[in-house]
Design a binder for these strands. Structure first.
Lengths: 127, 127
DNA sequence: CACTCTAGCAACACATGAAGTTACATGAGA
DNA sequence: TCTCATGTAACTTCATGTGTTGCTAGAGTG
């Protein structure tokens, strides 16, 4: 599948697709080929890869929209708050990764097929 | 304490302080007075208010930097991914609130004083 | 009554970061 | 050699949170 086709399906731009897929390629989850007949191919077992793997392959983008204003501070009040905050966010992030680590692509694949079967009417694929 | 003094201590702007404190006032955690000698006063028991209360009084700002691109979609793949994602984020947010709900302002207050005692040299307050 | 000091608030400006776009280079078939 | 694909850098756009200005209203002071 080409970046162009993926971009159309995802309602985005081929370059954005390449940027994202680049991370997945570095981890061996997909493979890309240039030139005629090129594009992206899957190169992993769906039951061996989790959302956590994907998240990390995508360079673990920032998870929280909140956080400490600064790590280094002179202010002892800020220090106390930062300490409490950091500790909570670290715990919560760990739980997040654990959850994502439980969800395999195979599970999503199965869920998709269930939804497809449940849908009435003609079964047109996403775009 | 005036918004102006708080803003100096927090390295920000009086208007920003008022915006934030407004949320706390609505929940009765602080009280404000206009005019000469006015400003902000605490009006709650520190051991009765948690970070969760503060977070919610501040209108529960967006917690995650990631999330579904859109809630409504035609695409069954996106639907499956959204479902998995939403479920994880909801669980994780619940844990976040639970943690924040355990941390009272009194605890932060105590932590601050411990840091103050532990600090060598003269004890100058934050600004 | 005039003056000053304070919060309240709306409207605007700025900063940051994510997402999208353009342009060009590189490699692989036809 | 032409076309089709990825790779990548640089730039633009957009969304969101933060900061700023300007004004109103209320409360004490002289």
């Amino acid at each position: 599948m080409t970046s162009e086709a993926l971009a159309r399906a995802l309602n985005t731009n081929p370059v954005v697709v390449r940027r994202l897929m680049g991370g997945l390629r570095e981890h061996g989850y997909v493979h890309s080929e240039k030139g005629h007949g090129g594009g992206w191919t899957l190169s992993c077992q769906l039951d061996q890869v989790t959302l956590r793997d994907i998240y990390e392959a995508l360079d673990a983008p920032r998870l929280f929209a909140i956080g400490n204003r600064s790590e280094e501070t002179e202010c002892l009040v800020e220090e106390a708050v930062n300490h409490a905050m950091s500790s909570v966010l670290a715990d919560v992030k760990a739980q997040f990764l654990a959850c994502f680590g439980q969800i395999t692509l195979a599970a999503l694949h199965a869920d998709f097929h269930q939804r497809l079967a449940a849908r009435h009417g003609p079964t047109t694929l996403c775009k």
